[in-house]
């Protein structure tokens, strides 16, 4: 199969939102090559994910599954690490590590920054 034929086929097959290789709608979009510094929120989410992985609470594959399960409009709207927080919360609730009610209560009233 030639590359062009393969590309045509790839454009016709329904794709999951995260499966971005060669997706036509992004081929005309310029790449933002400017540096973007991470903020404290980003760093903390990243660190928590690493700790959950190191302690065997949640794997990187579960993180990805949680991200890929987001509604497409939410996936497109949220920043990289906001997607991660949503995924981590969903997976930990699904696994029974935390409860939705407790997370809601702490999110609203917990001592934060």
């Amino acid at each position: 199969m030639s590359n062009d034929v393969a590309a045509d086929l790839a454009d016709r097959v329904p794709r999951a939102m995260h499966d971005l290789g060669g997706v036509p709608r992004f081929l005309c979009e310029a790449v933002d090559t400017a540096p973007h510094a991470l903020d404290d929120f980003d760093r903390e989410v990243d660190a928590i994910r690493q700790i959950l992985g190191a302690k065997g609470v949640m794997s990187v594959d579960e993180l990805r599954r949680g991200i890929e399960a987001l509604p497409e409009d939410v996936y497109r709207r949220l920043s990289y690490y906001r997607r991660w927080v949503r995924s981590i919360a969903s997976i930990l609730i699904e696994k029974g590590v935390i409860s939705e009610a407790a997370l809601r209560a702490h999110a609203i009233s917990g001592a934060g920054r």
Partner: peptide, 30 residues
């Protein structure tokens, strides 16, 4: 989607508190 009404910054605040409470990750480890 669960907790769709919560902002992700508040979700992080909740996660931080719960993970510390359960001895999974405390502020120093983070």
């Amino acid at each position: 989607m669960i907790l769709g009404d919560l902002d992700e910054r508040d979700m992080l605040k909740g996660l931080r508190a719960l993970l510390a409470e359960q001895g999974i990750a405390n502020a120093a480890e983070i």
